[in-house]
Amino acid sequence: MSAALLEIENLNKSFRTDSKSVQALRGIELDVREGEFVTVIGPSGCGKSTLLRIIAGLERGETGTVKLSGEPIRGPGIDKGFIFQEPRLFPWLTVEKNIAADLSLRKPEVRSKVDELIRLVKLEGFAKAYPRELSGGMAQRVAIARALLRKPKILLLDEPFGALDAFTRAHMQEVLLDIWKHNGTTMILVTHDIDEAVFLGSRIMILKPRPGEIRGQIAVELSYPRKKASTAFQEYRYRVLREFERIDELAWGESGAGI
């Protein structure tokens, strides 16, 4: 087993709103090995986006350490690719220029890599299109290509397909798996969709809300590509659901009130 690429130890984070302080994350421990595909699942408000933003360096944890390749994370950077829920393309740039972003397409090595990525995310023929001409799924594929061009050590995806319809989402999950198999990029994907978590993850982390804590993890020992209708797949679904029911019972027991 190779050493962990990402190491998170005892990470805590709280937000202050007016006079109240709300703990968003408590005692997060997580190691991710190179080449893993980790999915993080939890209801909204469980701090899963905050966790991802801290790994990306967009926010800071209060206590605890977050290290990438043994180095503490000091801020955002191209080694930590980030896919937001919305594609966030530059509306004034064409698809190929969005992928290149701050790099010049006139450099032959950038040009050839951009062309290769456009093929990888299956956008041939749209290189010169503007974002307004793209569907939501296509725009998100451009965002993924933009992150991949920088050869990130880890790709962080924050509910990337949440805004898409069910068919487009299923297609995007397949595209993402293709990329993972092709490039071997380490991925952490945050979602509230159980099917998505089981379909994509080699490991599923279960986050409970208020405060956000890891309440279990499930290693998914199914070969890719997975069949959502298969019995084995459904069994993993049930295991995730059972974890959440257990959390709900605990919450009822602790405070006398559910969510």
Binding site: A56, L58, G75, P76, G77, I78, K80, G81, F82, F84, E86, R88, F90, W92, L93, A101, D102, R146, R150
Partner: peptide, 27 residues
């Protein structure tokens, strides 16, 4: 501001921030 965040993640230099983000965004 969401695009400014993208520019941070992609580590835009000063010049690119002006030419690829601020100027066209303000155009």
């Amino acid at each position: 501001g969401r695009l400014t965040e993208v520019a941070r993640v992609l580590q835009f230099g000063r010049a690119q921030q002006l030419s690829r983000l601020l100027l066209p965004g303000a155009m």
